[in-house]
């Protein structure tokens, strides 16, 4: 049994216990767990503590390694129960592969584009109810409970990252990917998986397809200089899509 798993067991014990137990032990383990949470891996935060800004989750896309296989797209849409209704113009897409071509030289490349999880997200600025929101750890989400479906965020997003749900989905949803008619949605950076110590589905699928060396997607904490993503960015640099807008995106690209 690895330490990691034992910690999990411990936490389950703690969280799963009756109310009296929780009340009795909150203070001491709370303090200890807080120190544990400084490490920069998904799932390090105990799930009874709020997210904070000690981490900023990010993605790194290496366009040179992306072959457009769309495994990331499939994985994402399977994970979240996003299905086509046979109407491409109204079907939701959380992540898509964009093909680029330089008109003059004919140079072609492709890369996945999803919500860029901006530090200054225009969708959050314009949302009238505050349904468009940014978590303390940098993940941009839609609180569908208070989304009224005005679609102003879709007008404001520079990345075309958002989709409106144009039809009833009752009965089609998966337990950890709530989504429904009349609300707007986009990539959640697999917030549920990340909170539970997993990588986003697209990242996992990319590595499974192309191996550690060939993978085009890296997930990690942009604030931790030792994380794989930060190391890569330090070594090879990274660009933002529409960097001119100065939105400070959480998704970075190499090879564009």
């Amino acid at each position: 049994m690895s330490n990691e798993n034992r910690i999990d067991t411990y936490r389950r014990k703690l969280l799963g216990g009756g109310a009296a137990l929780v009340a009795g032990v909150t203070i001491a383990p709370g303090v200890i767990l807080n120190t544990v949470a400084q490490a920069a891996k998904p799932g390090d935060r105990p799930l009874d503590r709020p997210v904070d800004d000690s981490v900023r989750w990010g993605l790194l896309v290496d366009a040179n390694k992306c072959d457009g296989c769309e495994k990331c797209v499939t994985a994402c849409h399977e994970t979240h129960g996003v299905k086509s209704h046979g109407r491409p113009e109204t079907d939701a897409q959380w992540i898509r592969v964009v093909k680029l071509r330089d008109r003059k030289t004919g140079y072609e490349q492709q890369l996945p584009v999803m919500c860029q999880h901006c530090k200054h997200p225009p969708c959050v600025d314009v949302c009238p109810t505050g349904a468009s929101m940014k978590r303390a750890d940098g993940i941009v989400l839609v609180d569908k409970h208070i989304c009224i479906g005005c679609r102003y965020c879709m007008m404001a997003c520079p990345y075309k990252a958002r989709s409106f749900i144009h039809e009833s989905l009752e009965g089609e949803q998966l337990p950890h990917a709530p989504r429904g008619k009349g609300t707007v949605e986009s990539c959640t950076m697999c917030v549920y998986r990340v909170d539970n110590g997993q990588q986003p589905a697209c990242v996992e699928a990319c590595a499974a397809e192309h191996g550690e060396e060939g993978k085009a997607l890296i997930f990690g904490d942009l604030k931790d200089p030792n994380s794989e993503i930060s190391q890569q960015l330090k070594k090879y640099g990274g660009k933002q899509i529409r960097a001119d807008l100065k939105l400070d995106t959480g998704v970075r690209y190499q090879g564009i």
């Binding site: 491409p88 897409q93 898509r96 592969v97 964009v98 093909k99 680029l100 071509r101 330089d102 008109r103 584009v113 520079p158 990345y159 075309k160 899509i241 529409r242 564009i256």
Partner: peptide, 10 residues
């Protein structure tokens, strides 16, 4: 999204 380049996607 990518000024100066031709873009296409699904």
């Amino acid at each position: 999204l990518f000024p100066g380049l031709e873009e296409s996607s699904s």
